[in-house]
Simulated assay, not measured.
Amino acid sequence: MFNSFGNIYCLTSFGESHGKGVGGVIDGFPAGIIIDEEFVQQELNRRRPGQSILTTPRKEPDQVEFLSGIFEGKSTGCPIGFIIWNKNQHPNDYNNLKGVYRPSHADYTYTVKYGHRDHRGGGRSSARETISRVVAGALAKLALRQLGISITAYTSQVGPIKLEGTYSDYNLDLIETNDVRCPDTEKAKEMGDLIYKVKGEGDTIGGTLTCVIKNCPIGLGQPVFGKLHAALGNAMLSINAAKAFEYGEGFKGLKMRGSEQNDVFYNNNGRIETHTNHSGGIQGGISNGQDIYFRVVFKPIATLLMEQETVNLDGIDTTLKARGRHDACVLPRAVPIVEAMAAMTILDYYLLDKTTQL
């Protein structure tokens, strides 16, 4: 059950980093949706390794193969099965890690919990598992398009280099024009230069992604244990290396008074709206029709191409130096993953909302 995500729109994923492939089964997808397989593949290409000098050089085509649930270009309402075959595994790169615990990885916790672990790239704990999420998220985006809902994420901070404005201050069409996926071209160059420098040192660096959901209908979410922002937080914090989540003003709101932060209502030609959106489009756990925006913090990736102290499986002090192909910064490739998890959550809560109405 813990390999599944969602209530009505549900993804069950499978596969490991250096196994034969990664895939999933999607249940609850509405029937009759036109499936643009080229779009799905484009989303996978945005997550794919080896797409720039800033990412891991692992070369994978990441070509999705649909197995069921699609007929004559449309969803049938039956489970959609799919797989992406691994083509460029180098499991021998990890042989020196078999007998040690890598700092800040899941090696130790997996060993204690399950009695053994897959040391080849982290196995199930590898970010390669997120391929399944991107496929399911792309399909969710196709369904949300029919409702006019759009979801856009971008890199807003790398290390100390930060965008000072909000999403409305930037041209989001510029996100895909640079390797960092940042809508500010000058900041994007600074971020890219920093990532490249850190990569050359064998080190890693983290940062923040911002995401905005536009045209979300009013009423998604439940008042108590099914709050929409809690569901989005759960989705984001399930992503590898994600360490924090905030929506609306978030921690910035701590510096404001209630009189400054309250979103005052007004009548806009018969539609109730708010003059501001400090709440981030969600009030009382329920969407209010304004833009939903949030930020996700990602830590520096734990695999370093430099010597580190650790212990072996017997608890004896030792050192290790990782080999293989690794990202120096997760952010550029995490953009489509954040969008995918947001799309899955919004579609799931849209379908949930329909089941609660008489």
Rank of each mutant, 00 (worst) to 15 (best):
M1F: 09
N3I: 06
F5S: 04
N7A: 11
S13L: 04
F14T: 02
G19C: 12
G19W: 06
G21L: 00
V22L: 13
G23F: 03
G24M: 02
V25E: 08
V25Q: 04
F39E: 07
E43G: 04
L44V: 06
R46H: 14
R48W: 05
R48T: 03
R48N: 05
P49N: 11
S52G: 15
L54A: 02
L54M: 04
P61S: 09
Q63Y: 08
V64M: 03
L67H: 12
S68N: 08
G73K: 10
G73C: 03
T76V: 08
G81A: 06
W85Y: 13
N86Y: 14
Q89I: 12
H90E: 08
N92C: 10
D93M: 05
L97E: 11
G99A: 08
G99Y: 09
G99M: 09
S104N: 11
H105D: 04
D107Y: 10
Y110S: 06
T111D: 14
K113D: 04
R120T: 07
G122P: 12
S125R: 06
S126P: 00
E129A: 08
I131E: 00
R133H: 06
K141E: 03
L147H: 05
S150R: 10
I151Y: 02
T155E: 09
T155N: 10
S156A: 10
G159V: 05
G159T: 10
I161M: 07
I161Q: 09
G165Q: 01
S168Y: 02
D169P: 03
D169C: 01
Y170V: 09
N171H: 12
D173G: 11
N178L: 07
T185H: 11
K189Q: 14
K189N: 13
G192C: 13
L194R: 10
I195H: 13
I195K: 09
K199H: 00
K199V: 01
E201V: 03
D203M: 01
T204M: 07
T208Q: 05
L209M: 10
V212I: 12
N215F: 02
N215K: 12
P217K: 09
I218R: 06
G219E: 00
L220G: 00
Q222D: 07
G226S: 08
H229D: 14
H229S: 15
G233E: 03
G233W: 03
A235W: 03
I239V: 13
N240L: 07
K243V: 04
A244P: 02
Y247M: 14
E249C: 12
L254R: 08
K255N: 14
M256H: 08
G258Q: 03
S259Y: 08
E260F: 01
V264T: 10
V264D: 04
N267P: 10
N268D: 15
N269D: 12
G270S: 13
E273S: 09
G281Q: 03
G281E: 04
Q283F: 01
N288G: 00
F294N: 12
R295F: 07
V296H: 05
L304R: 12
L305I: 13
M306S: 15
E309T: 13
E309R: 10
I316K: 14
I316S: 07
D317V: 06
L320W: 14
R323W: 09
R323I: 07
D327T: 01
C329W: 07
A334V: 15
I337A: 00
A342N: 02
Y350G: 01
T356F: 10
